[in-house]
Amino acid sequence: MVNQRLTVAVSGIRQLTPRICEYMLTSLDGAKLPEHEAGAHIELYLRPEPGGQIVRHYSLIGGTGRGDDAPNTYRIAVQRERGRGSNFIHDHLDVGSRLAISPPRQAFALDRTDPHSLLIAGGIGITPIYAMLRSLARRKRSFSFFYSGRAAEELAYRDEVLSLAGERGQVHVSGIVEPRHPDLRALLAAQPEGTRAYVCGPRPMVEATRAAAAALGWAPGRVRSELFGAGSNVPARDFTVELRRSGREVKVGADCTILEALDEAGIPTLSDCRRGECGLCPLPVLGHDGALDHRDRYLSPASREAGKALCICVSRLNGARLVLDA
């Protein structure tokens, strides 16, 4: 599982909104791709020149309406944002382009035994929510669906998801100038007892949902969330890593983690979860000219304080030069 990559070819492109394109990614030999469940995502490994590798996470949409995609094909949707990743995809991927992806990973699972599920999508956050909506509708489970965005024409899959949700679906258009944000607290308060909420959207929306749930006395586990653009939700900057033992220097771009940059440079590393949890990747820190930006959930406060180790899969440097023992 560690670092396994698959090669796929773009087999179809569809413009969904002025800023969002849908891409069909098909295995080269037509063989089945690994199976996935609603909420799963893949990583795309992009290699724009110049600038080095970029890794981006995209949810698997799984199909259209009630139907599944062919087992040899994944469907993703990419919104053009500031930054290199999504622009590279929009500008350079054509039908036939090949690219490397990870197998599906699941960090936003739908609990199949919820008495009632509330799906909340903000903008491009619709992608995993669409897969969840399909799963719930197909299994005839109890759910509500809420989809909000700045403008009606920016809501990808709007007609498809509303037809799937039927009368349990609701759209909120907040407007671009003086936006009118949805009343998430009222939305949550209107749900039946025992509801679990799944929210995917921009950070303020996810945080507002969590705050509304807390204010209503919901246990934290009753809200599951995913931020879109998971790889780029905190601003990051370029820096250089010196690997003292191997006598090498590696540039880490703002779009790339230290781990990915070391992998790309052929430096042997250990990793598994790539989200700061498993504790396999930390490297000893020998020096740094800026603050260490710890983003993991593994290192204890004491070892962060000591500054002698860094989880290189998520953590970064707010500086120009980092020296690691590797």
Partner: peptide
């Protein structure tokens, strides 16, 4: 649900396990 709730060797349960 299959979700890992505790891995004694780690400070926090790994959310992706």
């Amino acid at each position: 649900s299959g979700q890992c709730t505790k891995m004694p060797a780690l400070p926090l349960a790994p959310a992706s396990a």
